[in-house]
């Protein structure tokens, strides 16, 4: 009897070993990608933050960053301010996408066509819409012409070439083009909610506002909280298509665009600055993200 059990256990272990070999062969390439592009690159980035010219430089890069922050007209401060403006726009779109998903879920007249057209900005190159938007908002552009029809004295300012208006003009673009943000996920999650819930609400005489805010949103909380967490994780990546619009001129840079300029067509001296900034930003964002995760963990998920 004991021999049988031992034999069975040995066979089980042999099978597990064979399974393990198969599994690691199957995911060998993703594992290599993980250890090189994720682990190695991030560790190297950390060490780069303390180097200059290939040699250990202590906190020199951080001092350089601090000096840049304290300088008059600091690009970094402008980038931080703009990043939070774009994050604000993201949050507006986040809330709006919940409303929009609700109306599509309730099959508003023409919803299939609306959904298709609203997705167009997400599926064709942003270059197309940026070119179009630039033309529409230019000094002699289409919008200026329409306004001049009503007010011949109107003179359109060059919105994208003035520090006071450039970022806000791009924010308008982001809000114009971003209606479908998260709608794919929200639409899918709404579709999985049992219709019995809506039917009983209807019998109780519930209107659309209560239906959305008191019934559907609580049922969507697991999805919404995950999407919000992902938004918070990516808070410092919030940006508009700066490269396509202004290339960071007219005080339009954001953190992610500033990081991009440190890497695009530059050299090691700029890479170390990006790494030093990365270490600082990671230290700032760590507690924010993990507090958010902890708060989200407190939300009871509803099974349906």
């Amino acid at each position: 009897m004991e021999t049988m059990v031992t034999k069975k256990r040995t066979m089980g272990q042999a099978k597990k070993l064979k399974d393990t070999i198969f599994v690691y062969c199957l995911i060998a390439l993703p594992l290599i990608e993980f250890f090189t592009i994720y682990v190695y690159v991030n560790i190297d980035s950390f060490f780069l933050a303390f180097q200059r010219g290939g040699k250990f430089a202590g906190l020199e890069n951080f001092k350089m960053l601090w000096d840049e922050i304290r300088a008059d007209n600091s690009t970094i401060l402008v980038a931080i301010k703009n990043t939070f403006i774009y994050f604000g726009a993201d949050l507006i779109l986040f809330v709006w996408s919940i409303f929009l998903s609700y109306f599509f879920y309730k099959k508003i007249l023409g919803y299939k066509f609306f959904r298709f057209v609203l997705y167009i900005p997400a599926i064709i190159s942003p270059v197309v819409f940026v070119v179009l938007f630039k033309n529409l908002t230019s000094v002699n552009g289409a919008i200026a012409l329409i306004i001049k029809n009503f007010n011949p004295d109107f003179r359109m300012p060059n919105l994208l070439a003035r520090s006071e208006t450039a970022t806000w003009t791009m924010v308008v673009y982001v809000l114009w083009m971003g209606w479908t943000k998260n709608m794919l996920y929200l639409g899918g999650s709404l579709a999985r909610i049992p219709l019995e819930v809506l039917e009983s609400a209807r019998l109780d005489g519930v209107g659309p506002w209560v239906e959305l805010t008191k019934i559907l949103v609580p049922l969507l909380l697991p999805t919404l909280s995950t999407l919000l967490l992902l938004d918070v994780v990516g808070i410092l990546s919030s940006s508009g298509p700066i490269l396509l619009f202004t290339k960071g001129d007219y005080n339009t840079t954001t953190i992610s665009y500033w990081m991009f300029t440190l890497v695009y067509n530059t050299g090691d001296d700029q890479y170390v600055k990006a790494s030093a900034a990365g270490v600082c930003l990671t230290l700032i964002m760590f507690p924010v993200v993990y507090t958010m995760r902890w708060l989200i963990g407190k939300i009871d998920s509803i099974e349906y």
């Binding site: 991030n42 190297d44 980035s45 410092l236 990081m259 700029q270 790494s275 990365g278 760590f286 993200v289």
Partner: peptide, 8 residues
């Protein structure tokens, strides 16, 4: 939330 690894 890891940032700034673009250079590396």
């Amino acid at each position: 939330p890891l940032f700034g690894s673009g250079g590396a």
